[in-house]
Design a protein around this nucleic acid. Structure first.
Length: 936
RNA sequence: GGACGCUUAGCUCAGUUGGGAGAGCAUCGCCCUUACAAGGCGAGGGUCACUGGUUCAAGUCCAGUAGCGUCCACCA
């Protein structure tokens, strides 16, 4: 084995072996365990959020597969209507063309070409991440079967009256020329103005002043509203206003929606261009005058002078015209929420159009019940509040989009605009007895992408057909996703899956945090702080990184700043850390917090961890290859250390599995890391050396230690495998033949998997918990040994004694237990503390001036002669005394408190008493030492 | 306006049903000891945001304050 771990050399070939051998398939036996991959955009590429969530899903998948479950990770991609259409449109624009130049059919053809070309990117990147979904079951939201499901759901909901077509105000994106749902509109506070405008009464008897943030909409005003009890305006209610510029007459109406305190207390009402005004218009039967075109220019309803102007140019014009005619009272600065499309950033216009809607109220009820009853569980739990809050106020869902890329709506119109909904045109004709000479045209619109996503849990399992997969893998075990799509996706899946299968879509919803940059900022192209998981795996030089971050930008003027910052943060580019280090980092960061600042230092730390595993394995292999590890039998004697590491491993295993059951991947990672590095490497490997390297050890002892060494390593690799698939596989290949693997003859592999697959760690059983190995006596014995060794190391460190210099130790106040432990552990102590001799002093025997360490009541003394700096030792002792004193006085205070003694549980009091006793003894000894040394 | 979250070591974060403040990284000292310098051994470092309450006992429970953040709704 090489001296350092080189991830690049093993990962790709290892993955290929896994994939081709069929080990990613559900085994067909055991309890079903399944996870749905939230389908990424088919033409997208992997970002940190994907890497994070997919690591978690893969860890769960690999863990359950090893546990012997019938494990399926269902994979697929999403057509991502708006996003994908925009990408291809932008490519066309670069050639000076628009999609309209091509026409719908040719444009859609172009998108399919783009999909064919770049559609594999993200799934290839998932492979780099080591994910293990069943690739043979990969689906696409617009493939034939998923499209069939979409049509089926649409038609059925329509038959039940739960999908309807209606003319309403919608959120209109004037750049995309499509309606979007409420969720796709972002309301950000922006600086704007409030214009106060004079509206004269038609009879010339006076005027009122309205305040508005959108003066241009006055062209479509059809009323002015005041509060019914507003005394200032009582006399005006019912009168007519003569609208400036257009000269139209509009009434003054009373409606308690108006807040008399705000603005002037008079509100201009524009039903066609404001949601609240629209409602009020309905209440008062006001006319609805639409003044905008689909690209948000003034239309022909307005006076000639304004026609064709963009709404913001029209605003300027109208304000200046009102000012000229004396109708403008004042302009105030005003902060307001501006609605913008989440894709385009364009200001969204409320716009009156015909759209398709899902009536969600009846679907929401069972979906709420499913969470309230506990059938579906959010993790962390408090996300259910977010869910309830939205579900209880849910509005009908606008599902039609005026795009070309997506599922075409299965509705047809005849020449009289009658609507027919059906699976196909033929079905529609048959059902409604429409003669062949009646021309039908299909609805031009496509469905919201989230409509097909909502069907994911059952559409991926073959619905509407009755399949064994539906029976076996629905509901899935857990959904792993971010809180940003609870409404978009999670809620809608619950509604649709309940509706069409009667089942819940998944049992647990594990909501991950959002990965942010090292400053806690969201990663975005325009901020130039995006990290690509693949770059962390393979590394990237600074020039490539800068050009990646600054190319294809929407705002090229930011490029320079971004380049500068990038060069500062990564002067030497990014190192290649490898997949396992990245995955382990993701796992270790998956705590309960909702924002996760990604810290490059941690990746480096976990890369070092990989190297640690690598080198520990080298050590084990050096000592077990070509040696007798007990695989073929033979006498074995396990040392104290051997039994200790087995007990420690069991403890770790238990905590690890408990953490996974709670989706606490951070704890699981922490526990595994701590065991591997701080127990296995720092102590156990060192403790094997005295056995293996000593001529005094018997064959049985050496065999026992080698046996333990190789098998604990083998088990540890299996423990770590769900997080670190590659390095564990690579090492396991060398370790397994020396260990007991295969000798007991059981494996979780499916019968369909070929023999080569048997040679993989990923289909080995996960380590089994075995309480008989959790020997408390052994654990505390080694605890004692560690304290002994650390005590001496401590003296060395403080006294600047070289670790190489052999020392002679004296012991005083040695109990029977101490003697027993000494006997069992002396070779360990001699080696690790580098002692030349250990002498036990008899009671009353005079000790020379020494530096001292305490292990319980026992004193370890290193005679000072020629070694020790007196002042240093004195300051060391007084520091120790201070610590103990602080503890003792606090404990004594507690025990002197009657209320504590009478109220606290006995166990707690006992513990405190023991602590006090121990502390006082220690203090006495420290004092004695201090005096001895002072006297020198 | 409503809901939710955060504030613990220089940095990034853990801290279960209340019972002796932890990890990684960074810092300081010693060490190329035959697995590993991407390493070993040791050390220093915290008024747990603030105020009050409950309790024998509060980082942990309750109330309030301040700062930061997210989501939802929205007054033209």
């Amino acid at each position: 084995m090489d001296k350092t771990f080189e991830p690049k050399s093993i990962e790709q070939q290892c993955y290929q072996k896994w994939e081709t051998s069929g080990m990613f398939k559900a085994s067909g036996h055991g309890d079903p365990y399944s996870i749905l991959l939230p389908p990424p955009n088919v033409t997208g590429s992997l970002h940190m959020g994907h890497g994070f969530q997919q690591t978690i899903m893969d860890a769960l998948t690999r863990y359950h597969r090893m546990k012997g479950d019938n494990t399926l990770w269902q994979v697929g991609t999403d057509h991502a209507g708006i996003a994908t259409q925009m990408v291809v449109e932008r490519q066309l624009n670069a050639q000076g063309k628009t999609r309209h130049d091509l026409g719908r059919e040719a444009f859609v053809e172009k998108i399919w070409e783009w999909k064919a070309q770049s559609g594999g990117t993200i799934t290839q990147q998932m492979r780099r991440l080591g994910t293990s979904p069943d690739w043979d079951r990969e689906v696409f939201t617009m493939d034939d079967e998923r499209s069939e499901a979409v049509t089926e759901v649409f038609v059925k909901l329509h038959e039940e009256g739960l999908i309807y077509r209606g003319k309403r105000l919608v959120n209109w994106d004037p750049v995309l020329h499509t309606a979007v749902s409420d969720l796709e509109v972002l309301n950000e506070e922006e600086a704007g103005h409030m214009w106060h405008m004079r509206y004269p009464l038609a009879d010339g008897s006076g005027e009122l002043v309205v305040a508005t943030t959108r003066p241009e909409t006055m062209l479509g005003d059809t009323a002015v509203a005041v509060h019914p009890e507003d005394e200032r305006y009582q006399h005006l209610i019912g009168k007519d206003i003569k609208l400036p510029i257009t000269g139209r007459l509009i009434p003054v109406i009373a409606d308690d929606y108006v807040d008399p305190e705000f603005g002037t207390g008079c509100v201009k009402i524009t039903p066609a261009h404001d949601f609240n005004d629209y409602d009020m218009g309905k209440r008062h039967a006001l006319p609805v005058i639409n003044i905008l075109t689909a690209d948000a220019k003034i239309n022909d309803e307005a006076p000639q002078a304004y026609r064709g102007l963009d709404r913001f140019d029209a605003r300027k014009q109208i304000v200046s015209d009102l000012e000229a005619s004396g109708h403008l009272v004042k302009i105030e600065d005003h902060k307001l929420k501006v609605p913008r499309g989440d894709r385009t950033g364009a200001v969204i216009e409320p716009f009156l159009t015909d759209q398709w809607y899902v009536a969600v109220e009846s679907l929401a009820k069972p979906a709420i019940d499913a969470v309230e009853s506990g059938e579906i569980r959010f993790v962390p739990e408090n996300w259910n509040k977010t869910y309830y809050q939205w579900m209880h106020n849910i509005q009908d869902w606008c599902i039609s989009r005026q795009l070309w890329w997506g599922h075409r709506i299965p509705a047809w119109y005849d020449e009289q605009e009658n609507i027919y909904v059906g699976r196909t045109e033929a079905e529609v004709r048959a059902k409604h007895n429409l003669a062949a000479d009646i021309t039908l045209r299909q609805d031009e619109d496509v469905l919201d992408t989230w409509f097909s996503s909502a069907l994911w849990p059952f559409a991926t399992m073959g619905w509407p057909n009755d399949t064994t997969e539906l029976e076996t893998f629905l509901p899935s075990s857990v959904l792993v996703t971010g809180f940003d799509i609870i409404f978009f996706w999670v809620a809608r899946m619950i509604m649709m899956t309940k509706k069409f299968t009667g089942k819940i879509p998944f049992k647990d919803i594990y909501i991950t945090g959002l990965i942010r940059d090292e400053n806690g900022d969201k990663m975005s192209k325009s901020k130039g702080n995006v990290l690509d998981p693949i770059d962390l795996i393979d590394g990237i030089d600074i020039e490539a990184l800068v050009s990646k971050r600054t190319s294809g930008m929407m705002q090229p003027q930011l490029a320079e700043k971004i380049a500068k910052r990038t060069r500062k943060q990564f002067p030497d580019g990014i190192q290649a850390y490898g997949t396992d280090a990245l995955r382990f980092t993701f796992a270790a960061m998956a705590s309960t917090s909702r924002d996760i600042s990604f810290d490059m230092n941690r990746v480096e730390g976990y890369r070092n961890f990989c190297n640690k595993i690598w080198n520990a394995s080298r050590f084990v292999l050096m000592n077990t290859e070509d040696a007798d590890t007990g695989r073929e039998g033979g006498d074995m004697e396990l040392s104290l250390a051997d039994r200790w590491i087995l007990a420690q491993f069991q403890q770790t295993l238990k905590e690890f599995e408990a953490a996974l059951a709670d989706y606490r991947f951070d704890i699981a990672a922490q526990v595994a890391y701590e065991f591997t590095w701080n127990q296995l490497c720092d102590w156990y490997l060192e403790l094997t050396k005295p056995v293996l390297n000593s001529d005094a050890s018997t064959q049985a002892q050496k065999r026992g230690t080698r046996h333990t060494l190789i098998n604990v390593l083998e088990s540890t690799l299996r423990l770590l495998h769900p997080f670190m698939p590659f390095i564990t596989e690579e090492i396991w290949q060398k370790v397994a033949p020396l260990s007991m693997v295969g000798t007991s003859g059981h494996s979780v592999t499916t019968a369909a998997v070929n023999d080569a697959a048997q040679q993989s760690i990923m289909v080995q059983p996960f380590p089994a918990q075995d309480t008989s190995l959790q020997d408390q006596q052994v654990l505390s014995d080694i605890e004692w040994v560690k304290r002994f060794i650390v005590g001496i190391r401590n003296i060395r460190g403080e006294m600047d004694i070289s670790p190489n210099k052999p020392l002679n130790a004296l012991l005083r106040n040695v109990s029977e237990q101490d003697s027993r432990r000494m006997k069992a552990a002396q070779p360990f102590i001699d080696r690790l503390a580098r002692l030349e001799s250990i002498t036990v002093l008899n009671a009353g025997e005079q000790a020379p001036a020494s530096a001292t360490a305490l292990v319980g009541d026992m004193e370890i003394m290193i005679p000072m002669a020629g070694l020790i700096d007196k002042d240093a030792e004195l300051s060391r002792i007084s520091r120790a005394m201070e610590k103990v004193e602080k503890d003792v006085s606090r404990t004594r205070g507690k025990l002197n408190n009657d209320k504590f003694v009478s109220n606290a549980p006995d166990a707690v009091i006992e513990k405190e008493r023991g602590k006090l006793d121990e502390g006082e003894k220690q203090l006495a000894k420290l004092k004695e030492q201090f005096e001895t040394i002072s006297a020198l």
